[in-house]
Nucleic acid binder design. Structure first.
Length: 347
DNA sequence: AACTCGGGGTC
DNA sequence: GACCCAGAGTT
């Protein structure tokens, strides 16, 4: 039996019932694919339902305020996905008359749609013959063929891409693509794959050599850097000061409290005496309310402290992009995890 | 080719 | 603590 026949056979018995598999609507498939980028199915599923309900078609998505989209995206991470989705939706309305494209090249031209997502939408919606290449497929191919070339090297990407295309079932591309991903997610798992009951066992190079734990190979990235964020809670009769993150850094456009960043750890005494603090807040009094907590991101460790600020100059907001918001309206603002969990606990 | 962009789960 | 997740965009 051929490779693809075995994969499809396995899929027939083990297929996951996922909500976005019940449609051929490319817009709905697009929603699910963007949400699931670098995101587990269990984490993304509730967001998928929220987005389908709030934006049932691409026209409504395009007409939405970006603030609303970001707010609905809150907590999912990689927020550029949400901003790119808004751009892509507008592009579909403007360039494709609101008809969501299904051809690979058209899909690739949409912001936030790369090779994986374009292949997924094209094959799932209309059975176009493009092989998907995600973390699952990399792992399955690397182990089955015993490929030691790192999956994130340039040579590796080329090699695996060619291989994936050669193996693609040209008669059932959509189903085959789904099957490969389910197989990687459920059977050929990163840790402790179930090789004893694997239909590919006899021909799997990694199994034969006992290399399952070594493959796939991956080039290691840079280590995380440490950053120290100091958040200031400025409250006045039912309102609190909020600020928006700048572009070019983590959490672009999301709301948070006014803050100062230091490159080293600092006590609240040192902070209060620092030039940076006095430049902005003058003689205001700093009172710690939540001690330093570590927030881990992909490429940085953020150590965040929260302080209450008292006796501040009433004109402090004049020269900045800060604004007071009613506490009851905080829920409407898109906030990153550090701030949303603080707001839940504190207010 | 290297870096950056989140948050959460698993081992 | 290290690695991974239905990756993509920028430099």
């Amino acid at each position: 039996m051929s490779f693809s026949a075995r994969i499809l056979d396995w899929y027939h018995d083990h297929k996951r019932a996922l909500p976005w598999r019940e449609t051929k609507n490319p817009y709905i498939i697009w929603l699910s694919e963007i949400i699931l980028q670098q995101t587990r199915v269990e984490q993304g599923t509730p967001y998928f339902f929220k987005f389908v309900e709030e934006y049932p078609n691409v026209t409504k998505f395009a007409a939405a305020e970006q603030e609303s989209i970001l707010r609905l995206w809150q907590g999912l991470g990689y927020y550029s996905r949400a901003r790119n989705m808004h751009k892509a939706a507008k592009q579909v309305v403007d360039l494709y008359d609101g008809i969501f494209p299904t051809h690979y090249k058209d899909l690739l031209s949409l912001p936030g749609v790369g090779e994986y997502t374009a292949a997924a939408i094209a094959s799932f919606a209309e059975n176009h013959a493009h092989a998907v290449l995600d973390g699952n497929v990399f792992r399955v191919l690397s182990r089955y063929f015993g490929i030691e070339e790192p999956i994130n090297s340039t040579a590796g990407k080329k090699l695996f891409s060619k291989l994936a295309d050669e193996l693609l079932d040209r008669v059932h591309p959509g189903e085959y693509n789904q099957a490969m991903m389910d197989f990687g997610a459920m059977q050929c798992k990163p840790k402790n794959p179930d090789c004893s009951i694997c239909p590919l066992q006899v021909d799997c190079v990694a199994y034969g050599k006992g290399l399952q734990a070594e493959l796939p190979k991956k080039l290691k990235g840079k280590k995380s850097r440490n950053r120290y964020f100091h958040y200031f809670v400025l409250e006045r009769d039912g309102e609190v000061m909020m600020s928006q993150r700048p572009e070019g850094d983590v959490w672009t456009n999301l709301f948070e409290f006014p803050m100062l960043e230091t490159s080293e750890m600092q006590s609240h005494i040192e902070l209060q005496a620092s030039a940076a603090f006095r430049d902005t807040f003058g003689d205001a009094q700093l009172r710690p309310i939540v001690g330093m907590q570590k927030h881990v991101l992909s490429h940085q460790n953020i150590y965040a402290s929260f302080y209450k600020l008292e006796n501040i100059d009433t004109d402090i907001a004049k020269n900045s992009n800060w604004n007071y918001y009613l506490l009851e309206n905080l829920d409407k603002l898109a906030k990153h995890k550090l701030i949303s969990s603080f707001v839940e606990r504190y207010f």
